[in-house]
């Protein structure tokens, strides 16, 4: 019965997916529960801030610069048709601060830091480091997972802000320096149109949510990975795929909640 088999297959996949979501949620709450010690010993978080935040700086800055430059170029081409080149600053800034900054920075963060986190935790599990820690009466969630989680959550908004700031500079470079849009109207229109609470704060909130999502997915996949080479590589791939999809879905939900009502 091929039909029954297909239906069984679908059912099996759905049950599996729901089970994994449940386990990941439980994992997330356990991480929060055991976070106390990483704040008492803040150097644990600082060490992870280095490997997640600082190591992602270059890719974020370079990507931000190019995205901003492309926005400047494309925006100019489009706005020129309506004779409103002076709104280029608004377009670049709003595009970056509201959407591209948080989203692209989070996507890059997932593939740069998230995958590294999964691989590291997965390998720690495969080489029995996590079991060893448990046998030493040290809770691995408190000692390994929680500092990485908080480092990710702290890094993400900072990286997104850097991405947007560098991107706006890239747009300024292309629009004002290269093409010759009026510098005064570029900045003043931007300032008139970008609202601190509405646009910038909402962007920060978005990137915080993305930071939580990406690090939870990355850490859970690593912690849950089968302790083999294929297991770890599969988990790393799943981290990048799942967190990219979750970022884009969450972005829609958050955008609808923040800007949809008006």
């Amino acid at each position: 019965m091929p039909v029954a088999k297909t239906i069984k297959g679908i059912g099996n996949r759905v049950i599996n997916a729901v089970w994994r979501i449940g386990m990941a949620t439980r994992f997330f709450f356990l991480t929060l529960l055991y976070s106390g010690s990483s704040f008492r010993r803040f150097h644990l978080i600082i060490k992870e801030l280095f490997s997640t935040g600082v190591m992602s700086l270059i890719i974020i800055i370079v990507a931000g610069l190019f995205v901003g430059m492309v926005l400047g170029l494309q925006g100019y081409e489009t706005l020129k048709r309506y004779g409103s080149e002076s709104a280029l600053g608004v377009m670049v800034a709003l595009g970056l601060v509201r959407e591209l900054g948080p989203v692209v920075a989070a996507l890059l963060f997932a593939s740069r830091a998230g995958s590294a986190m999964t691989a590291e935790i997965g390998l720690m599990k495969a080489t029995e480091q996590i079991s060893a820690m448990e046998m030493m009466a040290v809770n691995p969630i408190a000692r390994i997972i929680a500092p990485r989680f908080w480092a990710g959550v702290i890094s993400m908004p900072l990286l997104a802000a850097l991405f947007s700031a560098v991107g706006i500079f890239g747009g300024y470079f292309v629009g004002v320096v290269q093409i010759g849009v009026d510098e005064g109207s570029f900045w003043s229109q931007m300032q008139a149109a970008v609202d601190f609470r509405e646009d910038i704060l909402n962007g920060v909130i978005k990137s915080l949510v993305f930071g939580v999502a990406v690090t939870v997915i990355a850490l859970y996949e690593g912690y849950d990975a089968p302790p083999t080479a294929e297991g770890v590589s599969g988990a790393t791939t799943r981290t990048v795929v799942t967190s990219s999809l979750v970022i884009l879905m969450l972005d829609f939900v958050l955008t609808a909640m923040m800007f949809g009502g008006k």
Binding site: F50, V97, P157, A161
Partner: peptide
């Protein structure tokens, strides 16, 4: 990293936004 990130946020708030 942290100082740079916060500086970027402040720059966004002051120079780009209307704060």
């Amino acid at each position: 990293f942290v100082v740079g990130g916060i500086a970027a946020l402040v720059m966004l708030a002051m120079k780009v936004g209307n704060l």
